[in-house]
Design a protein around this nucleic acid. Structure first.
Lengths: 141, 141
DNA sequence: CGGGTATGATTGGGATTCCCAATCAAAGTA
DNA sequence: TACTTTGATTGGGAATCCCAATCATACCCG
């Protein structure tokens, strides 16, 4: 197998894996009665209280899309908008107490659903997978 | 770091990586003037000519969703429906000549967009990443 | 200080995606 | 020939997402 073929195989594996992870996340979200995007919002806000534009950038979405996402999450009582001290244009978004509980619970379920893919790996495989992913896709948002 | 914390870190890395891959796929699709779902359809049909229901199962979607996806892809001349010999209920879907060209071209672009995440890895890292992904997320569809 | 510009967020419009329930058509079966 | 099963589509409704336009507040400069 040539180097480029190995690269192609790796890229195929990455894509396949990503769709599989998305599928599991979507399933968790559906069982929780929310959408994948809402799940993402809850995840993104677990340790942040960003401005709308920052949240949009973090999710890679248009600002107007995030307005709608936050609208619906707010209707469910999961997030709240708060005013920025000193600049009345800015809207900060954060989880409500209920939203935080939901977010933690959902994170647990996500862990569980990914576990059966990850657990069978040997300790060595986990370590190298973790290291490689960390290097290739560093934490950003 | 305890074992479960290592697992949690790995799972976070998997999720983060999946969203990053999705983001890049979405970008390619947008630049090609199609949606991520359409890109998936083209990818799924590159080496298959499944029934509608098989395609739906492979994509993890409802049959009716796939009807719509194929409708729109067909309007663009990318895929074609063909009748099944011997069972008039069955509809098989396949790429047209143009669809195949598009699919190959897009696959190239996807490779390119993922390359800059993968190339920096050492050969060893690539090999172990590939092996771990293969074990955790084997080829299914 | 007042008017013009820049910034942050929202609204409106339109296409797509996706599911569920119901329907239609063809096959298989009693 | 009726009944049931199977494969696919249609119809309806909610979300998602983008783009363009709008609204409100801040900032700046003459």
């Amino acid at each position: 197998m040539s180097t480029s073929e190995e690269d192609a195989a790796l890229r195929d594996a990455l894509v396949r894996m990503s769709f599989e992870v998305m599928s599991r996340l979507t399933r968790v979200a559906a069982e929780e009665g929310i959408s994948l995007s809402q799940l993402r919002v809850l995840g993104a806000l677990r340790d942040r209280r960003p401005r709308m534009a920052e949240l949009a950038a973090g999710l890679g979405l248009d600002r107007s899309s995030v307005t709608g996402l936050v609208d619906r999450a707010q209707q469910r009582g999961l997030v709240e908008r708060t005013a920025e001290e000193g600049d009345a244009r800015v809207v900060r978004v954060g989880l409500t107490a209920e939203g935080l509980r939901e977010a933690e619970r959902i994170a647990e379920r996500v862990s569980g659903l990914l576990a059966d893919a990850v657990v069978p790996l040997s300790a060595d495989a986990k370590a190298s997978l973790s290291a490689a992913l960390e290097e290739a896709f560093p934490v950003s948002f």
